[in-house]
């Protein structure tokens, strides 16, 4: 009897293992947002990250990197402050009484290097050389000097995976700077960024700057996102669709900043 069962299992071992592995992969896929799975992903990223950046290890040993980090941090702070000033100016125009508006923006940022970008067939993401040891955790915003890049989706000990704006599963709460209209930015399958469902009565115009709304739990307000490239009516004519051009050139991205902490007004 046991011999028969053993023979049966032995004969079908390929199929049994196949079923188990498929089931395991499926469960991992379905529970992708659970902390345990994110931890596993972070550990794998950490373990095999060395394959991605042999050149980077050499560069990291030189002292110049520290100095560059400092300068990049300062550069980002100034650019974001500048963006904030434009916003404050426009607010002042609308609300003349608020002359005493104060700028209390304060970001705690961590400069990081991009050590791998989008190397598989699917997914729009990049790997950075910072992890939990640098206080990086999941869902922290990632920016560069040109604007929003994405968010951390998996933080390992020393490396992290960042989902970029061009990923089809990415969403970002935005505001059009001039018209003050709100919207959700998403990427189409072909990587084009769009904001849909803008009311037909809104006066969003090409060239208008797009910034973060501050309504998300992840991103602070007024981070630069991009500008409106094109605005068109939806097929049923009920709303408008804006095509957004990101300020960030993702193909040549080398340095990014993780915003560890921020204060909004």
């Amino acid at each position: 009897m046991f011999r028969q069962i053993y023979n049966l299992v032995y004969d079908a071992i390929d199929y049994i293992v196949f079923g188990i592995l498929l089931l395991a992969a499926f469960v991992i896929l379905l529970s992708g947002n659970s902390p345990q799975i994110r931890k596993l992903q972070g550990n794998i990223t950490d373990t095999f990250a060395f394959l991605a950046y042999p050149k980077h290890l050499i560069k990291k040993t030189t002292g110049l990197i520290q100095e560059n980090k400092k300068l990049r941090r300062e550069n980002l702070r100034l650019k974001q402050r500048n963006s904030r000033f434009i916003e404050a100016y426009k607010e002042n125009q609308r609300y003349e009484k608020l002359l005493g508006f104060t700028d209390s923006i304060d970001y705690e940022v961590l400069p990081c290097r991009v050590i791998n970008f989008n190397s598989m067939a699917i997914g729009k993401s990049l790997m950075i050389d910072a992890g939990k040891v640098d206080n990086v955790t999941n869902n922290l915003p990632v920016v560069c000097t040109d604007g929003v890049v994405g968010k951390v989706v998996s933080a390992g000990e020393t490396t992290s995976t960042v989902q970029i704006m061009k990923d089809v599963n990415y969403r970002l709460s935005i505001r059009f700077r001039d018209s003050r209209e709100l919207g959700i930015l998403r990427s189409r399958d072909n990587g084009v960024l769009e904001v849909r469902e803008i009311p037909s009565t809104s006066v969003v115009h090409p060239g208008e700057e797009v910034i973060t709304s501050g309504f998300s739990n992840i991103y602070p307000a007024d981070l630069r996102v991009g500008k409106v490239k094109e605005i068109r009516q939806s097929k049923n004519g009920r709303y408008q669709i804006a095509t957004i051009e990101s300020y960030v050139d993702f193909r040549s991205l080398e340095e990014v900043f993780v915003i560890l902490e921020y204060k909004n007004d």
């Binding site: 991992i28 896929l29 596993l40 992903q41 990223t45 598989m120 997914g123 995976t161």
Partner: peptide
């Protein structure tokens, strides 16, 4: 993990 798939698995 390393290839940065957002859909892990």
């Amino acid at each position: 993990g390393i290839g940065l798939s957002v859909l892990f698995g």
